[in-house]
Nucleic acid binder design. Sequence first.
RNA 1: GGGCGUUUAGCUCAGUUGGCUAGAGCAACUCGUUUACACCGAGUAGGCCGGGGGUUCGAGUCCCUCAACGCCCACCA
Length: 717
Amino acid sequence: MSDQNPVPEKFLKPYNPQAIEGSIYSAWKESGYFNPDNLPNERTESFCIIMPPPNANGSLHAGHALFVTLEDIMVRFARMRGKKALWLPGADHAGFETQVVYEKKLEKEGRSRFQMTREELYKEIWDFTQENKSFMEGQLEQLGASCDWSRMLFTLDDRVIKTVYDTFKQLADDDLVYRGARIVNWCPKHQTSLSNLETNAEERTDKFYYLKYGPFTIGTARPETKFGDKYVVMHPDDERYKEYKHGDTFELEWINGPITATVVKDEAIDMEFGTGVMTITPWHDSTDFEIAERHGLDYEQIIDERGRLLPIAGEFEGMKILEARDKIIEKLEGKGLLEKIDENYTHTVMTCYKCSNLIEPQVRKQWFIKMMPLAEPAIEAIGKDKVRIITPQHKKVALHFLNNIQDWNISRQIAWGIPIPAKICTKCDAGFVDVEDTVTKCADCGGTVEKDPDTFDTWFSSGQWPFITLGYPEGNDFKTYYPTSVMETGHDILFFWVARMVMLGLYRTGEVPFKDVYLHGLVRDAKGAKMSKSKGNVISPLEVSEQYGTDALRMGLVVGNTPGTDLNLDPQKVSAYKKFANKLWNVARFVLTETTDFEFGTEVAFASEDEEIMRKIDELSKELTDDMEQYRFHLASEKIYHYVWHELADKIIEDSKPVLQGDDERKKRSRQATLYTLLTTSLKILHPFMPFVTEEIWQSLPQKDADMLIVAPWPTQ
RNA sequence: GGGCGUUUAGCUCAGUUGGCUAGAGCAACUCGUUUACACCGAGUAGGCCGGGGGUUCGAGUCCCUCAACGCCCACCA
């Protein structure tokens, strides 16, 4: 046997991912092919994915590994199919999230953000994120992300801020921005307001107190808010209280002495609940706030931003609400105003999604965006599949959200974020949008103005990410790649991010930001439990990648993972795909060993059984292409796995042994050519899923149609 | 209180528009040191596809209903 195509020695040992992944990634990077401007051959059709920018505040977790895998599969597939394929990476400053992470770090060091100036804090968090950002880029590389690093963008880069300001100004000019005293979700620990989406509803069992309030009995779970209550509210149709008229006043003895109360009739009252009568605390309760707004009632702050009682509480001033509660009840009991206590009252309370502390609603002046005018075009786009959410259940959920959308509070009282370009009057508290920084005095009262100290909700800028990253309005990338092909992200941020990108994208550019939406689920542990540090079941994708190889990790994340549903990451499953990588390695070894004497470039007379074998892989390729176009990666990956192992290796190779060792030269040559084609085709269709091992094998092929597999033509091209 | 989803082999899950004699990985069992691979091969066992009803020549797949579990949204003091 002549040896014109020698088999590289590396094939004599089992496949070792750790030894080759780094150098393969470097080779791709140096090739420049991650940047679509450098791709070979003329490419007319463009393809673009904007990466959901990972938060620059820690390591990548399993969810990141999943999105990298899915998006990398899509972009590699598009690249091989001859498209101008761009995957644009980013890093997110992640406002509140990062500030919370940093505060914890400060806490560990025995420091606190409240002892620092905003500037000091900002500077420190900036350095912290920059460090994390480069760390994170290395981790994305480890996972094989074939994204275009030359277009990398950070969410606090100047270009981002400029575009965000332009959008804010346009919204203001269109009368879609207002500053209003509204009740907001206030977290006393984090000292900021939060959007509704940033709170959790938690069921709790608390005491429910029945208190004598003049001639009435009122029920409350929060006696500490009742100091200023001077309105007593009941349903207009409640027969029990028909003798009391709206506007009646009466004197009564209350916590800290006699007060005058006024009767209010409002339909918000549930006659079945408690006694059907309640007093209201408009400053600290959203229902109460709305009742007060409807009737033009007074409201007064009882609890400060730290969760302590204000002077109105008299002797209780300065106490934390929970400490005060029992003492207040004691006093009420002493005065004979406590009627009874229901010990097993269950209700839902709002908690901060980060610290789980009780949300203390507060009335504050905040910037809001009117959402209905923005939501309407988005409802149409999603309803008519101009933005096609490929999982029908999420389409329904998104439409439901948009149809019931409420105005969006975009003010955050934190340092880490994009400052709101606005001025506030120091005298009358009026607010003015001021992107050009030209407002010097109050237009209402002539008073002096100061910069608004608040920052934007981070999702306000993130919501503009697709068109910002592509350089709207003038950038060439915007013209080439917008609307982008697909947005792939976690279903948990459908409202936070996806819906807002659709609304703001349509608002700003008049076009949808992406044509398709692929939502993946939560990555859970092997048994389906949610990963958490406290449970100790967190699986680090980077460790898994080091142990089994990135290709195996990727297969473990994608095989059987139906779009939109949660996925269990099982190291045993990943281990199985490590074996598969080795299987492929040995298939390559076999084929290369058996074709050392094959003369490439000469005519082959194929035997009919070989034509049949090749027809089958062509069929498979077509089927896979269809699956991939329809985002059925979970099926495509499994089919390739099955083909390579149980068809190519178990059957075709086994059946080939006698042919290759036989003395029919024509048949042998035909089979050699066939096996070689099966190998190259398998490498191609497997490459989006297992990029490293396939590229490593490709580099050792004596005959190929592209220097690198990453740009090799897809079999059906 | 609304909405969405899940229920298929011991475990974790696939099963795309109804054609399935229901699959995969892991686990289990039997055999096998055949020069691609022991990170292996050949084979075996294991499921009234949550319950009930319906549509259909045909249902894991469509419709109704019940049950269990899960998720999301929501201002009951």
